[in-house]
Simulated scan of single mutants.
Amino acid sequence: MKNKLDNRKDNVDRIQYNIDRTILNCELADEMIEKTDDPKMQETLKEKNDRREEALRGMREEIRDEALDKERGYK
């Protein structure tokens, strides 16, 4: 059985897609926070958005690294 080659050609596009979806989810959660009167739900959504913001920082760092490596021809 042969190992698959590590194909990273689409990493930047995939990461950008994930960033876009995460931002959209943050915006949708913000809308729900505005609409709901349930304090527990508001707190849950705020916590999720905090985690999403942390994930976004990591994804942005990863996309920078991938783009730099792609420029240098490493991948």
Rank of each mutant, 00 (worst) to 15 (best):
M1R: 10
N3F: 14
K4H: 14
K4E: 15
K4V: 11
L5M: 11
D6M: 12
D6Y: 08
N7M: 08
K9M: 07
K9D: 10
K9C: 05
D10A: 12
V12C: 08
V12E: 12
V12P: 02
V12A: 15
D13W: 04
R14A: 14
Q16S: 13
Q16F: 05
Y17A: 15
Y17Q: 15
N18G: 06
N18R: 06
I19D: 03
I19Y: 02
R21P: 06
T22N: 06
T22L: 04
T22M: 04
I23C: 03
I23H: 03
L24R: 10
L24Q: 12
N25P: 07
E27K: 12
L28C: 06
L28P: 01
A29N: 15
D30A: 14
D30E: 15
E31Y: 09
M32I: 09
I33S: 03
I33W: 04
I33Q: 05
E34C: 07
E34Y: 09
E34S: 12
K35H: 11
D37K: 14
D38I: 11
D38S: 14
P39Q: 08
K40W: 09
K40L: 13
K40Q: 14
M41Y: 09
M41K: 15
E43C: 07
E43P: 05
T44F: 12
T44G: 04
K46I: 13
K46V: 10
E47Q: 14
E47R: 10
N49S: 11
N49M: 10
D50T: 14
R51V: 09
R51G: 15
R52M: 09
E53A: 10
E54V: 05
A55Q: 05
L56K: 01
G58S: 02
G58R: 01
R60F: 00
R60P: 03
E61T: 01
E61C: 00
E62N: 00
R64G: 00
R64T: 01
D65V: 08
D65W: 03
L68I: 01
L68E: 04
K70A: 07
K70Y: 03
E71C: 05
E71D: 11
E71Y: 04
R72H: 06
Y74K: 07
